[in-house]
Structures are given as structure tokens and as C-alpha cells.
Amino acid sequence: MPVLDRIDPYARLEPVESVTVPFRYFVANHCLDASIEPVLLDWLEADAPWALVETDFYEQFEFDLRDADLPPALACLVDPDKLARLRRKMEQALGDALAPHIQMVAHRLDPGQRIAIHNDMREGGETHRLTIQLNRGLDDADGGFFMIFNSDDAEDIHRILRPVSGSAIGFAISPASHHAVSRLHGGTRFTLVYSFFAKRDE
């Protein structure tokens, strides 16, 4: 693997669309540096420490990126300076001041798995989220769509986003931030999920 420690892996993240209703979110066509994405996909498929997690609204494989033994080529993903730049991009995109702490988790959906409608709200929890989609080229028949809702009614769909590899969705978590991932029928759907916390006045 090449050593990519001098690269800012998140430099390409630029929102192409910002939306305020039903909640604040943005969409980006590209996020990760072009040299990082194939190396990351290879590692996620072959060596990542996946563990099955089941809750009341999803079943998927995941692991904490901060606890993983990342290869040198991917160390830039957790570099504090690179993450600080990513946090500033989130602040600019959503207009909120964010604390330095960032949580980073990788998710994997296999055929048959899905994530039911939810809003990510929990007391004392994260306040903003960035999800980067990664895969080998899923098509519509494979499913795995990121779905945004106008309410907590699963029939009240606001928008459906294809799981285009390298694309990203960032949003402010609120009681209205209802979203889901439709059932995966083919292929493998990876995501990197970054959780941010609103900066509190001292």
C-alpha cells in the first residue's frame, strides 16, 4: 500500500446542494481523495475488524475506526489535523460551531440487511453527522438507498439518494431528521459515519 499520510483525505468534500426542510442537510458528490478510496475499499473488504451489531431498527456490521489497526496508507483518515479541517467544512456547510471531538465508525450492509427509519436523536448524544458512501458500483436493483423522510411515517418520503460511491450526506440531528437505508439486495454497501457534537458555551 502506498503511504498517503501527506494527503488530506477529505479535501474534495464540497456541498453541491444544501437543504433546510424537512431538516438541515447537504449532499456532496465527492468526499474522499481519489487515491484513498480504492485503498480503503480493499482494506474494508479484506482486513477490517467487522463485528455484527443488532438493534431494534437495524442489523449491520461495524467497527470504530479509532480503535482499528489501520494500515499506514489510511492513517490520514484519523489524523487530528485532517479531522479538524473536516470539522470546519461541516461548520461551514451547516452553520453551527462544533466541538473538536469526532466519533468515527465504519458500517457494512450485506444483502438482506437494512436500516429502518430513525432520527439519531439521543439525550447528550451527537448533534451532527456525516455519512460517506463507499461501494464497488451498486445499481438500482441492488437497493441500499439513503432515504430522507418528512416525518416519522415511512410512507412520507422526502427524497431518495442513490448509494454512489464517494458521495456524502451531512446533516444536523434533530427530532425531524428522519432517515433510513433501504434493504440491500446485492453487492456490499460500506459507509464511514462521522459524529460531531455542538460546541457548548463555556
Rank of each mutant, 00 (worst) to 15 (best):
E37F: 05
T188R: 13
F190C: 01
S35A: 11
H185P: 02
P71W: 01
E202Q: 12
L40T: 00
A75M: 09
A34V: 09
L40V: 02
L77Q: 07
V16N: 15
A198W: 02
R108I: 09
A75S: 10
A172M: 11
S174H: 11
V19F: 11
A97H: 07
L184D: 11
F26E: 12
S165G: 09
H128A: 15
D110E: 11
L77Y: 04
E202W: 06
P111I: 02
R200N: 06
H128C: 12
L4Y: 02
E59N: 03
I102T: 05
L94H: 04
G112A: 05
M104R: 01
R6F: 00
T188L: 13
S18A: 12
S167V: 11
E126T: 12
D96M: 05
D42T: 06
I132T: 02
T131C: 07
F23K: 08
D96K: 04
S195V: 15
G170W: 07
G137S: 01
A141D: 14
V3Q: 11
I102H: 07
H178S: 03
T131V: 13
H128W: 11
V3H: 15
Q133G: 03
E17G: 02
S195G: 08
A116G: 11
N150E: 07
D69W: 01
A93W: 08
P163I: 07
L77D: 01
A48E: 02
R122K: 15
D140A: 12
F57A: 08
S35Q: 14
L74Y: 04
C31I: 06
D201T: 13
G144W: 09
A106H: 00
D42M: 07
E54M: 09
R88H: 05
A84M: 06
F171T: 02
T20V: 09
P175Q: 07
E45F: 10
R183W: 10
L98R: 05
L161I: 14
F149Q: 14
T188K: 12
A73N: 10
A106F: 00
H185W: 06
R159N: 10
H128T: 12
D67Q: 12
H128M: 10
L74P: 01
G144I: 09
I115E: 14
T131F: 04
V105P: 00
D120S: 06
P175C: 09
H185S: 01
C76Q: 03
C31Q: 05
P38G: 13
H158Q: 13
I115A: 09
A48Y: 02
